[in-house]
Amino acid sequence: MTERTGYQDIAGRLAREIAVLEPGSKISSEHELMERFGVGRASARAAVQELERRGMVRRIRGSGTFVNRRIDYLISKDLRPSWQRTVRAVGATSRSTVLLSEVRPAPEHSARYLGVGPETPVHHMRRLRYVDDRVAALADEWVTCDVVTELGAALRIEESLDELLRQLGRVDSVRSWCRAGMELPDDDVCRALDMTTVAPVWVIESINRDADTGTAVTYSKAWMRADVIRVVMEIGDHIPCRTEEGKS
């Protein structure tokens, strides 16, 4: 049995066992896998890394490896652009931690996306987002100051930016543009997301506008852990239906 076949065989057997376990269940350590399957540390580690690549397990520094639960994060023009509402819609819990909140001149890219002049003062926030108490995403958000004047203090009371804009700015925020892709994060993002290994993450950029005026009110860029979130995008005017012949 080659080293490659060995770790893939171990990963396959563990995957079948994990499929019937509850999310959060702890799985065997690398040392225990070495003893159970009679392999070296390299094969045991590669098997766990393969399960992590599949999104089936997650590793927590100093605690071990656990059965993972990955949720679908749906992006659609028909849904309110709210992290909290989207996460809760799939039965998961959501919370956010504010890492930074300040009013500052808009960076060039943010000013362009928001349709304001360079150096125009905007609210800038950086927040760490959690799903079921797991670090899931890091987000930078820029909000035009003419929509709402005080934002930092309000975020300590209401976590949903979408809800705050509705309450304080009387803004009916809708998603008008979105770009999604995957990339390898830099060291700062890896540390913020508590990633034990460098792996591709979802990168989501969005512009939200006021439905009534068409004015851009927020621009955001988020890095989402792919082992916690599966990004799903729905594009189109309606859900396709099947005809009598069984064709869509």
Rank of each mutant, 00 (worst) to 15 (best):
Q167W: 10
H109V: 12
L21W: 12
E159S: 10
I27A: 01
L161C: 03
Q84D: 09
A47P: 06
E234W: 00
L128E: 09
V103H: 01
S101G: 15
V39A: 01
G64Y: 03
E150K: 13
A47I: 01
H238V: 11
T97Y: 06
P200W: 02
Y113M: 15
R166Y: 11
D194A: 14
R45V: 12
V67R: 11
D186N: 14
L100P: 09
T65Y: 01
I71R: 00
A106G: 07
W202F: 09
R80C: 04
W177H: 15
G55V: 12
L114M: 12
S248F: 15
R80W: 11
R59M: 05
M195K: 07
L21D: 04
K26I: 08
A111P: 13
A216N: 13
L33Q: 02
A47D: 01
A15L: 06
N68P: 00
R170Y: 06
S220Q: 06
P185N: 08
S206M: 09
L21Q: 14
V87L: 05
V143N: 11
H123E: 10
A42W: 10
P81H: 09
D140Y: 10
D210W: 08
D72A: 11
E50L: 09
D227S: 12
R166G: 15
V20W: 07
V135K: 00
R16Y: 11
Q84M: 13
V67C: 07
R4L: 13
L164E: 00
R69M: 13
C190F: 02
V171C: 05
Q167N: 10
E50P: 02
S206H: 02
A154Y: 04
V189W: 00
T149W: 02
S94H: 15
A137M: 14
I10H: 04
L74S: 10
G40E: 04
E30W: 02
S101L: 06
E32L: 05
I18E: 04
A216Y: 02
V143R: 09
E119K: 12
T93Q: 11
P118N: 01
C190V: 15
S206P: 02
V103R: 07
E52S: 09
R61N: 13
V67N: 05
T149N: 03
A46W: 03
E234K: 11
P81Y: 06
S94L: 04
